[in-house]
Amino acid sequence: MLHKKRKVMRMRFAAGLLALAALATGLTACGGSGASSIVDKAKDDKKLVIGVKIDQPGWGLKKPDGGYAGFDVDVAKYVAKELGVPESGITFKEAQSANREPFIQQGQVDMVIATYSITDERKKKISFAGPYLVTGQDILVRADDTSITGVESLKDKKVCGAQGSSSPKRLAEKFGPDWESKNLTQQQGYGACLPLLENKQVDAISTDATILAGFAAQFPGKFKLIGQPFSEERYGIGLKLDDKAGRDAINNAIEKFFKDGSWRKAIDTNLGEFGKYFTTPPSVDRY
C-alpha cells in the first residue's frame, strides 16, 4: 500500500518534471513557422508577426494607446494588407538592431521592417524585398553648432552610436581604433544618445538620416541634420533566405505602395517638416 503510494508520488513528480520541460521547450519552439513561404502563411492563417523598432520616433514607435506608429509600421500594414492579412492579424514585435538576422533565421518573426539596410553580408543569412526607401548615414548636431560640416569634421569630434549598429563601425573603420576608443561611445539604442548630444557629452550622433530625422522632429529647434549622406543605405524588408515567392509578392506590394501615393503620404505624416529630406521612392531590386 505504502509502496504503491510512493510509486504514484514518484510518477507525479516525473510528470511534473516533464511538464516543466515541455513548458521550457514549448516556449522556445513557438514562433517557428517551418520552411513554407510567407505568402502561404499569410493566406492560410491571416496572421503575420512583423519585427519593427519600438523606440524610434517617426519609424517604429510603441504608443501609449497600445498601437504602433511610424513609417515602417505604415509599410508593414500596407504590405500585410496586400498579402491578405488585415491590420488586426498583425502582431508587432520589437526588432533591435543587434538581433534582426537571428530573428528572421529562427522564425521568431515572419518579416522585419525596421530601418533595415540591405547588405551583402546580411544577404548571406536572410533575403530582402525592396528597397522601399534609400537614405544614407548622416550626422545630427546641436542646432547652434557650425563646426561640423561633413563627415571629415568628425575626426576630432565626439560621436555617439548604438551597440550593434553598422554606422559606428563605418566611422571606426574610417578613423581607426584610436579614434574609436577616444571619440566614440556606444549606447543601448540611439534614444540614449540624444541627452548626451543635448548636454554636450558628445558633439554628434551619426547614423541613417531617417533615424536622425525622426528624433530631431521630437525635439523641435534643438538639433539639425547636416544633410550630406556619406553612405547609401537601402532599406529593405527582411525575410527568410529561401523565400523567393514571398520576396516577389512583397516587391509587388511595395511597387503598388509607391505608385498609389501612399509612400509620399506616409513620409509626410510621420516626419512632418523633415519629410523634405526624402523626395522620391527608389526602384525595387528584384534579385
Binding site: 576608443s181 577616444k182 548626451l196
Partner: peptide, 12 residues
C-alpha cells in the same frame, strides 16, 4: 554626465 555635469575625461 547630462544632468550633474560629471565628466572625467575627453577620452570617451
Amino acid at each position: 554626465g547630462t544632468v550633474m555635469d560629471v565628466q572625467f575625461s575627453d577620452d570617451l
